[in-house]
Design a protein around this nucleic acid. Sequence first.
DNA 1: ATGAAAGCGCTAACAA
DNA 2: TTGTTAGCGCTTTCAT
Lengths: 339, 339
Amino acid sequence: MTVRIKDIAREANVSPTTVSNVIHGNTKKVSPATLERIEAILHKRQYIPSMGARMLAGNSSHLIGVLIGSKRRQERGIDRDPFTSILLETLETEIFRQGYYMLFHISDRPEENWALAATWNIEGLITIGLSPEENEGIREKCGIPLVTVDVYYDIPGMANIGLKDEEGGYLMAQFLFDQGHTDFLFLADNDTGVDHMRWEGIVTFLKEQGSSEGALRERHLLIPSDIDGRQAYYQKKLPLFLEKQALFFASDYYAAEAVQYLRQNNIRIPEQISIAGFDDNVYASMCSPPLTTIRQNVPQKAAAAVRKLAALIRGETGIQLEERFPVELIIRDSVALRR
Amino acid sequence: MTVRIKDIAREANVSPTTVSNVIHGNTKKVSPATLERIEAILHKRQYIPSMGARMLAGNSSHLIGVLIGSKRRQERGIDRDPFTSILLETLETEIFRQGYYMLFHISDRPEENWALAATWNIEGLITIGLSPEENEGIREKCGIPLVTVDVYYDIPGMANIGLKDEEGGYLMAQFLFDQGHTDFLFLADNDTGVDHMRWEGIVTFLKEQGSSEGALRERHLLIPSDIDGRQAYYQKKLPLFLEKQALFFASDYYAAEAVQYLRQNNIRIPEQISIAGFDDNVYASMCSPPLTTIRQNVPQKAAAAVRKLAALIRGETGIQLEERFPVELIIRDSVALRR
DNA sequence: ATGAAAGCGCTAACAA
DNA sequence: TTGTTAGCGCTTTCAT
């Protein structure tokens, strides 16, 4: 078996309590001599705590749960999204740095999520890709700090890390306008959450330009969330695209996919149709031509989510619940100056 | 507080032991009447076990650790690889299905990894992106079942899930040959592990065609593992590339990146240079032109890794330690028939 | 078929 | 400054 506090105590001729105090840095209660002695033995014997016992006794698990919803992502065919990859890695790195461990679960079943939290005595939760309702349900059931990512909602008291999506929409609308694309279309597979806010940014800009409500609505295209549906949709809309000459997609993934489709149909990008994306992920840089897009810093969001959660767990007061990071316009080659 | 076994026992007028037996399906020791009664109460009260107590008492944590190394991936700039994303998601799904929970950690420090395993009483480990030595160290220290992914090594008794990399190399070599590209080059950023085996497959084919050792060596190009280095390298090698007319990259990522680079230099793909990749991930399909590549089924590998680990944990005998899944040649548009 | 009791390793309240 | 003690919730002999 591994070495326990009891073993260390015996070897140091002290009580388990003292050893425990040393381990937890309650150093004011321990004389320098014993402190040093115990630390030496701890190190020599390579003491490793048993989280099982810690959880039982102290009621603190040092576990942070990362919950991600899968349904919508799979539907959209973006389950290979590099977003998740980089997000998870940054989350774990930061969680560990903060002294916690990461329990990871994918599910669309709320019961599963809160059962997990209870089973493991989880101290805080980070959720990605869950709806506001699901988040609210989990928070009520679990009663532990919860930080969401990329959610917009009205529920008071819920912490969220996000992006200035609206500003992103605004920036790109402005840029497209400056390039002469006053007629650009916006394409997204839904009109809620971040995609809605990106659209709102566009609306703000266009209204400043004197656009009417009716004209606005015609610019907003809801594309199917399955790949075959999208192909068919693009086929149907091709004449419209060629007329408007500029498409602003709510994500790089959709933008890159569209570029692919259009090129296969011998449309020249950006000469015939300009394309813009959102995210600035690997799809944007790998695309031919590379995408003009709105950059978001995913690691920054992930690290912020963990830090906010840790602060919440520590019970710090005066924490700003909502945090939205800035975005940046990245100009590459997929948008042409309209002649 | 949440409901405990003791509470259920009291309500059912039985002892905690009996409740525990019911929970674990030790049903032969329980009369049908009490069984039913207890199950009803369990359900009604929404009993959720405390893993802390379980770990302490029963010494079984139901935890599977997923360890990934980060160093090499970051160096190569493939830390946004969709591979990790899809792999992690499939791993978690399968781990949960098998009745385990997933503890996730990223690290290049072996001590950290085995401390994690000991701290959490982890029952089995899946590692990705660690060297054979690191894996061996972890296995020795932890003494628990370990399944690696995509590792080649000589250490007996280590379980691994991989791919028929050699066959992949062979298949693509054969295809390129058939298309008239008898002079194709192979490009990878190392000559160990999977990349080495892919090269070995090429070697096997070329030897069948009567190629000499010397000629073989000249086909194998080691590219820098940082992006700037690669750019400079491609610049330097451009004349060679144009002469050979066909490049087979060890991964879709590098292939797609090269396509990008070459097109920016006004090289037509595949007319002037044919490009082949390996993996068939999103880079291959998003590339313009879409890549001819070797397909691997990542979810299949992930699920197999978990199942093998679960079998090892259960102590099943006669388990095949090494499992390598087949690959498939996917023909798209990035390889032209050589005139 | 059911129960009593010991103990897993640790923490924290309380004593000394 | 240090030690004693009583659990935390569960499993597991061993009785009954």
